[in-house]
Each structure stands twice: as C-alpha cells, then as structure tokens.
Nucleic acid binder design. Structure first.
Length: 967
RNA sequence: GCGGGAGUGCCCGAGCUGGUCAAAGGGGACAGGCUUAGGACCUGUUGACACAGGUCUACCAGGGUUCGAAUCCCUGCUCCCGCACCA
C-alpha cells in the first residue's frame, strides 16, 4: 500500500533504484588499488521482525559507507546472520505448544502470516524465516550491502572457521575446564535466562557458605552469607512446621528441609534422600560448632524459610537482627518454651560479640533494632535493619580482639579467610541460592541454581590476555570516547567466561563434542570471515581445515594446503593466495558498530580475541557504540508490543523519510525517540527539497541541467554570500560525517542550508522576476551540491532528482564535493550580518518609539573607531588601560573623552562580536539600499559623515553596527 | 555496593577546547495569512521590563577560579545505564 507521498519518491521508485544498483553490482567490493574502508555492524540475531530500532543500527553504517564511497574509497559493508544460541529453541517449543502469548506476539507484532506461523515450531525455520525477512527489509531500506558475503553462523564453512578459532585459543592455553552455577529449570532441563522467566526477573545468584553442625553422627547444615559470625553462634533455628529430610552426601548424612532438596541436589552430586526427620525431635537437642566446638541448642522459629539455603539457620543474635528479635520473641512465648522444655536453656543464652563497628555497641543487632523500631519477627522494618547492619559490618567492621586468629582484621578480608579455612577443613561447603524467591520458569516450574561441571571457560581473567585487550583498546578510536573508561573497567572486571552450552544452535566444541560453543564466543572475530566468505561456495568444506585458516589469516604455511576448486579457471594455489590477499586487503577492520548493550561483553570480547589471535597490525581501528530506541518517549520492546516494525514504517513514509528521521533525530550513540509528529516534520523537509528543484526551473524557464552548469563570475554580494554559506555548510557536514555525527551533518546539510537558501531566496525575490541568470546559476550550484551531500542519507530521492535533472550515471558514484575555502569569505558573511542586523534594529526601534516615520538616517562607523577596535582585538583582553594607552599613542582621536567612552563600550562589545577586519560599510549599505528601504518601509539616507545629525546619533556607531537616526 | 554517564527555556534537545549565548534545531502553544470549514501550508510571537537598537533575571542547588562561566574546579541533591554466562 502506498500512501500519498506528495512530491516524494514512492515505493515503486525506491524499488527501481534498488534494482538498478543491484543490476550493476554497485555495492560489491573487491580488492583493487584504491584505499579501502571496511565497516561492519553487529550481525542481527533474527528471532523476530526488524523494527525501527534495528533500522537505525543498520542505517548508520550505510550512510557512512555511501559517504566514504563518494569520497573515492573502496568500501566494504557486509552482512550476516547470527543464528547460534538458545532463544529460538524456546520460541519454537512455545509455538509448538501453541502458547497463546507467543502465537499472539508472532502474529501481531512480528506480522508472521497465519500459514507460516506453525512452521516456526522448527528453530531452524525461525532463523531462516527472519533472516530472509531482514534481508528483504534491508534491501527496502536501500542499504549498500555486498550480499555475496552473506552467511549464517550455522553454515558448515563458518563452523570450520569457529573450530579453528577455538583450537587456536586452546593451543594458546586460553581455554580451561571448570564449573559454574547457573539459573536452571529442572523441568525444561535447560539453563534459563532472565527473559525466560515468568516470575523473579532480576534475581541474582548468591554464594553462601554451608556449615556443618554435628548432631548424633549427622549434620544440620545451615547456610550463611557471613561465615565469620560462626564465632557468635548461640543456637540453631529449625522451623517446626517444615518437613525435614535426611540426605546422604558421599557418606555423610545431612538434615535439610525437603523444599531445599531440589536446589541442593542440583549443586551437590549424588545427593540421596534417606528418610524423613521430625524437627520436633531435634528441637531442644544440641549441635556442635565445628570451629569453636561449643554445643548449641536447637530452637524453634517460624521465620525460617524452608526454600532458602538448606532450611535451617544458625543464630547470631548479637549481629543478626532477625535472630535477636526471634530470641526475644521466644523468651516470652511460654507455649513454645513449655512444649520443648526450653525455659532454662533460653534464659541462659548469652549474646556474643564478633565484630566491632564504630557508632555501634557490643551487640549491633540490638542497636539497629532500636534504631528502626522493630517490634517483632514479622515487622516490615526488620529487613531494612538487617540490610543496614550487614552492609555496615561488611564495609566498616573489624573482627573483635576476643576472636582467635582473626581478631583485628577487617570483616571483608577475614570473611574470605574463614570461609576458605572451613571448606579446606571440610567443615563447610559453597552453595548457591537466588537473591529472591520464587524464580519461576516460563514453563511454570520453579528454577534452581545448578552447578554445571565439565564446563569450558575462556580465561579472560588471564592478566597477559587482559593486557593484550587493553593494548587493542588503546589502539582504537572509540565513538563516543567517554566509553573508553567503561571498556577499561570491563577488561579488568571480566572473569573466566563459560564458553560451552548444552542447548541451542551452533558449532560443537571440537575436542568435546557434547558441548556447543556459546554464541558470544562464536562472534568475536567473524568480521574477518566476511573478507573471504564469497569464496566458500566453490570450495570443498573438508579443505577448510586449520592449515587453510592459518595460511589465509596468519600467513603461516603448515605445508599441507590443498584447495579443490570447482572453478577450473583457477589454479588451485592461485585461489588460496587470492583469498589470502583479499583478507589482507580488507583487514584490519576500520569500524565496528554495535549497540551499547554489548559494551560489557561482545565488544570487549572482540578486543580480547583480536588481541590473542591476530598480530597488532590486524587489530580493529575503531568502534561506534549505539544508543537505544524509544517510541514516543517509551522504551521500545518487541515482547511488550511497543515497537514499530521497520517494513510498516517504510510502507507508510518511504525508506528515505525513515532513514532521514533516524539519522537526524539523534547522534548514533544517543538514544533516539521515534515520534510520529517529528517524523512528519522530517517528511516536510524532504518535500521542500523536492520543491526546491521546481523553484529553480521557474527561474530558468527551462529544465536544470546538472551536467551543464556555467562558470559565471558572480558580481553581487548576496550571490557570493549564498555560495559562501554553501561551502561553510558543506565543510561542517563533511567534518561531522567523518566522525559519524549524522545528526550534526544533517543539521548543517539540510536544516541550516535550507535556512540559508530561504534567506537567499527572500533577498533576491525581486531579481527573480527578471529571469536573472546569476540566480539560476547560484541555485543550480547549490542544488547540485545539495543532492550530493544528501545522497548518503536519502539515496533514492537523490538518484531520482539527479536523473530527472540531467545528471549522468548514479549519484551514488558521484564524487563527494570538496568545499572551497576561497569561496568561504568571512567578510561577506559579516556584511550580510550588518545588513540584517541593521534592519532588525530599525524595526525594533520603530516598534518601541511608535511614532510616524519620515526618514531614516544611517551613519557608518568612523575610521578611528575601527582603528581602536583593531587595537582592542589585538590586545584580545578587555584591558581598558592598555587599549587607551595604545590609542592615545597612535593619536587616533583628539577628543579624549569620546575616546575613553568608546573604549569602555568597545571593551564590552568586542567580547561579543567576532572581528574579521574592517568592512566598507558605505559600499555595502548603498548596495543594499533598495532592500533595506523595502524592509523598513521608509526612505533611508546613508550619510558619509555627520554633517546632518540633529540628535547626535552618529556617535552611536560601532564597527559592524552603523548608527541610526529616525526622523 | 562497584563502575560509567546525565541534569539547559512548556517538552525533546544542541552548546559544554570559557567571551560571537536570552542560548541552534525540532515539537507544542498563541496570534495572523491562506481555506466554505477542517487538515495541510506560510509568517510572527513564545523569561521579564523598556517610547532609540537597551537593561535585568536565567542553563539542578550552593561555593570557587576569572575582566568574563551554561561552559573550568569543589560540595550537595536528583536521575539514568551496566554488573555476566545471555542475544
């Protein structure tokens, strides 16, 4: 459906140009003798339709590529599809299960036709479907992509490339085996990410220490954040209303809550249930503290959460507000005391001190409870009190002197030491739990923390590797540069990265086939793959072995390279060298573009891996990081339906309007906001641009011929002014584009230039009636340059206008115009300013005095004032003494009083006005007399001197500001 | 908590290597033009005051540096983002 686009090109015309570009392979880039630019954007993960946020991401490199191509560079802008990973597996399953939310999302938001919908139950089909969709929409946007290099990350040749890379890293000892905890859904038998959750989004995995308290050859195993408080234990808590069980852990028997078994059994191997335990049998009995060997009684407590940790808690009433208050509650709960016969034991409990903190007493828990006015175990303030105390003790606390070994140490340090000691001595173990409960998978089941063992890691913690990444970073241009500090932080902060997965699409780990390579790991250096991807169609997969990649990428000949080409025109050894040369031509990568959400992982990995695998001269040279997209001020999100699909936007406004808006509304690294009203505003600008061409025709009474613009020596100031402004805007726009400032470039190339043209057209409106050759010439020059600088932004419209008005060939192939500094004259600009300011001032005075005007007298600034002004400019400080001194010395003005008055004035004025040298004001004013008269609507008299000056106004004149007297 | 960043006029947002800044550009609002009307389009106004082109108050708050600060420094307040195994 094509909505009326006014003067703009419609979809059919956009299509026409896309086809023409394709016919002549305009954007296919091969090795040649020109200087090259290689630009890549993070390839999309095609699990849904492309929306306007993606539109911005891919339009930026396109605009830049088109710009650089016009400047004469050989530009490669390729595209691929990142289809490895797990999300589509889940999506496919939900489609198969006919999950209504998912079906609705894909039908309504992603606009999948009904007859295609059910096919999405195959994950391979999902990525195929949407990568095709992306490809088509990218074509509709007019992107100048070299599609011969397109690939999916599940292509066999890509897998070979990834295998090579992983083996390479392993041979460098940058891969190791280990284990790590993950969020896991036992029912799906899958790790789950935040986006897979029904409930508990944002829950983090906390590390706890399990401590074994012995009781009758068995162990109660409470878990804690604060192992150092083991020295302050007075008792244990069990919840009498909770089911407890006995489990066997490698010969030892633990007592845990039934609810905690699911989580713990995913972390401790071979945890077997032996039987049930009645907590009532245990309450009142004693357990042994493994560190202090003190015997602690077991008390009942209702606040114990059976799901958290192991369903039991050791009580440190001196330092844990919850324990303190529970103990207070128990002391007055006669029913419980009697039931378990605890009265004497409870009365004998003495609080213990472990940690000393400034501003708190011996038992900080007690203080903090008073501070927050906590009444009982169920008080809402209890949590706040706990948070505060835990934080303070951790950051500022010192282990008290009465504690053996660790007395005097900082809590933060002692905690780690105690923890390590307990684990080494087999008194404790590390377990994990969520920061909040419950965490529910989309399938509806509770998730757990599972320890994945035999997992493979990339050793990002390795200092030598980090150092390489840092060097790589310092080598790069980062846009915006503020992110550099961020990258440095991430390089330092990264720990070993689990690079193997159980579920998903992708490449298998070559030496351990049970694992798939994690999707961020398989996309760190793939930009190099683009440089040679076009060759793989004709190469036997088996020949893409490590020797091949070693040779092509690293120039290492291991002596066994054999390439079987189906193309008999090529010598076998010839083609591999061609491939190698092509890689060496394009690499290093000039610009890597990506969203800011990838700063902490992908983009940082990108530096790590280039640092490890490639020599320094192949390290990436620059990075541009994108902001996010908003829709009418709200965050865009496909899953919430708050998006505009790119193809819809193209259908409604046309690709050029969409491109223009995305480039003009914000710089690439800023968040942009798609506002319908403003999109329409942009559309108007583009329409104006089209009308402009018609305007020139009107003047000329003939068609413009962009190939035949006469070289005319321009006489009139205003004509020169227009050309000067054009060059200024061109210069600023070019500088901006070099730095990816698309918004600023458009500000100059579209908005400000349009303003200049408006002004010019207004100034010459009388001459236009007379079929003035000069105007037509100026406008033709402006128009020709203008189409060119807009061509990277709105290529379809510019091609169409170019063709319509006699341009030869594609505008996409035209040379980017160079600005001519000789045509940028500051004095001309200033002259125009004098005229417009004068008119403005006269009109303002008119408004204020509101009397009938007769005549307006204008007096130019006297010569001596110019001289003083020059002196002031040279001194470049509002130093009145110095200016005065020099002026008197040069005897510029006989009337000292007038001089000092002027100097005072000029001292202030000169800070506001740019000095560009003396201007012949009389000439300018005479030149523009007609225009000024017309504007102010009253006769004007331009005086050479002050021989007629009844109110002595001529003295008011300043350089660039003639005096006015209104009669 | 750790790290990064931001606070500008009704709104969004430029400026932020100090002076050309009452502060670009867009949106909105108001007024006028055009139109049968609406829409679209065009022009003007949009901090206050002012009968000579001016003055005052303004760029989160407070303090400082400077002849001069939205711009530099310090303090405080507020807000946003990332903190991983995921694309």
């Amino acid at each position: 459906m094509i909505i009326n686009l006014g003067g703009l090109v419609n979809k059919a015309i956009e299509k026409k140009w896309q086809d023409k570009w394709r016919e002549v392979n305009l954007f296919q880039a091969d090795l040649d003798n020109r200087e090259k630019i290689f630009v890549t954007v993070a390839y999309p993960y095609p699990s849904g339709a492309m929306h306007i946020g993606h539109g911005r991401t891919y339009t930026v490199p396109d605009v830049y590529s088109r710009f650089k191509r016009m400047q004469g560079y050989n530009v490669l802008f390729p595209m691929g599809w990142h289809v490895t990973g797990a999300p589509v597996i889940g999506i496919a399953k939900r489609i198969e299960d006919e999950d209504p939310w998912t079906l609705d999302l894909y039908e309504k938001v992603h606009k999948v036709p009904k007859d295609e919908l059910h096919k999405l139950s195959d994950p391979e089909y999902i990525v195929k479907y949407f990568s095709n969709e992306y490809h088509n929409v990218m074509d509709d946007m007019g992107y100048s992509i070299d599609w011969r290099r397109e690939f999916r990350t599940t292509d066999e040749s890509y897998k070979k490339f990834i295998e090579w890379q992983l083996r390479k890293l392993k041979s460098m000892d940058l891969v190791k085996k280990g284990k790590h905890p993950v969020k896991y859904c036992p029912s799906c038998d899958n790790p789950v990410g935040d986006h897979d959750l029904l409930e508990g989004e944002g829950a983090t995995i906390n590390e706890l220490t399990l401590i074994k308290f012995e009781i009758d050859d068995r162990f109660i195993v409470p878990a804690t954040f604060r192992p150092e408080t083991i020295y302050g234990v007075t008792n244990l808590w069990l919840n009498p209303d909770v089911k407890y069980i006995e489990v066997d852990n490698d010969g030892e028997t633990y007592i845990i809550s039934e609810d905690s078994y699911l989580n713990l059994s995913n972390q401790i191997k071979n945890l077997k249930i032996i039987g049930e335990v009645d907590p009532n049998d245990l309450i009142g009995k004693f357990v042994k503290n493994p560190i202090t060997s003190i015997e602690h009684p077991i008390f009942p407590a209702s606040f114990i959460d059976p799901e958290y940790g192991s369903g039991s808690v050791f009580s440190v009433p001196g330092h844990a507000p919850a324990d303190y208050i529970a103990l207070q509650d128990l002391k007055v709960n006669d029913e419980l005391l009697n039931k378990y016969d605890l009265k004497n034991i409870v009365d004998n409990i003495k609080l213990l001190n472990v940690v000393t903190v400034e501003k708190y007493g011996e038992f900080p828990a007690k203080d903090v409870i008073q501070k927050f006015n906590v009444k009982n175990q169920n008080d809402k303030n209890l949590e706040e009190a706990t948070n505060e105390l835990y934080k303070v003790e951790h950051s500022k606390g010192i282990i008290s002197d009465n504690i053996p070994i660790y007395g005097g140490e900082k809590v933060a340090i002692a905690r780690e030491k105690i923890r390590t000691k307990m684990i080494d001595d087999n008194f404790g173990a590390t377990i994990y739990d969520f920061s909040q409960h419950p965490v529910i998978c989309r399938c509806g089941s509770k998730t757990v923390v599972k320890i994945m063992d035999d997992q493979w890691f990339l050793k990002y913690s390795d200092e030598d590797w980090k150092e390489k990444a840092r060097k790589c970073l310092s080598n790069e241009n980062i846009i915006p540069n503020e992110l550099r500090a961020n990258f440095e932080y991430y390089i330092g902060w990264l720990e070993d990265w689990a690079c193997s997965r159980r579920i998903g699409l992708g490449t298998r780990l070559p030496w351990d086939k049970q694992w798939l390579i994690e999707p961020l790991t398989d996309s760190t250096i793939y930009m190099s793959y683009y440089t040679i991807a076009k060759y793989f169609k004709n190469i036997d997969i088996e020949d893409l072995n490590d020797d091949f990649f070693d040779y092509v990428f690293l120039g290492k000949n291991n002596g066994s390279i054999a390439i079987n080409s189906e193309d008999n025109n090529h010598d076998l050894n010839g083609i591999i060298d061609e491939i190698k040369d092509e890689f060496n031509y394009w690499y290093p990568l000039d610009w890597r573009l990506s969203g800011k959400d990838l700063v902490g992982n992908h983009l940082t990995f990108h530096m790590f891996h280039h640092g490890a695998i490639f020599p320094k001269d192949k390290w990436p040279k620059g990075m541009v990081v994108f902001g996010m997209g908003l829709l009418e001020g709200r965050k865009m999100s496909s899953s919430k339906g708050n998006v505009i699909i790119l193809s819809d936007a193209i259908n409604e406004y046309g690709a050029d309007v969409v491109r223009l808006f995305l480039m003009a509304s914000a710089e690439p690294w800023q968040d942009f906001d798609w506002r319908e009203k403003e999109v329409k505003g942009i559309k108007k600008r583009l329409e104006w641009f089209f009308e402009f061409a018609d305007k020139i025709k009107e003047i000329k009474y003939s068609t413009i011929d962009l190939n035949d613009i006469k070289e005319i020596e321009l006489e009139k100031k205003i004509d020169k002014w227009m050309i000067s402004q054009l060059n200024l805007r061109l210069k600023d726009a070019t500088t901006a584009l070099e730095a990816f400032q698309t918004r600023k470039a458009l500000q100059d190339a579209l908005f400000l230039l349009k303003k200049d043209i408006d002004h010019y057209l207004y100034r010459v409106r009388n001459r236009m009636q007379k079929n003035d050759e000069d105007i037509a010439n100026v406008l033709s020059i402006v128009f020709k340059t203008w189409i060119k600088i807009l061509a990277p932004f709105t290529p379809h419209s510019c091609e169409e206008l170019w063709e319509t008005h006699g341009g030869k060939g594609f505008i996409s192939n035209e040379k980017w115009p160079d600005y001519n500094p000789d045509l940028m004259d500051e004095k001309i600009g200033k002259s125009e300013e004098i005229v417009t300011n004068l008119i403005k001032d006269i009109l303002q005075i008119k408004k204020i005095i509101s009397k009938n005007l007769n005549k307006i007298h204008i007096y130019p600034c006297e010569d001596w004032k110019w001289d003083v002004y020059k002196i002031a400019y040279e001194i470049s400080k509002p130093d009145i003494g110095q200016i005065m001194g020099k002026s008197i010395k040069e005897n510029l003005c006989e009337d000292k009083k007038e001089l000092s008055g002027f100097v005072k004035k000029i001292a202030k004025e000169m800070t506001k006005t740019k000095y560009v040298g003396k201007i012949d004001e009389i000439a300018i004013l005479n030149n523009e007399k007609e225009f000024i008269t017309q504007e102010v609507g009253c006769e004007i008299v331009i005086h050479q001197d002050n021989s007629y000056d009844p109110e002595n106004k001529s003295k008011q004149a300043l350089p660039y500001k003639p005096a006015i007297y209104i009669e």
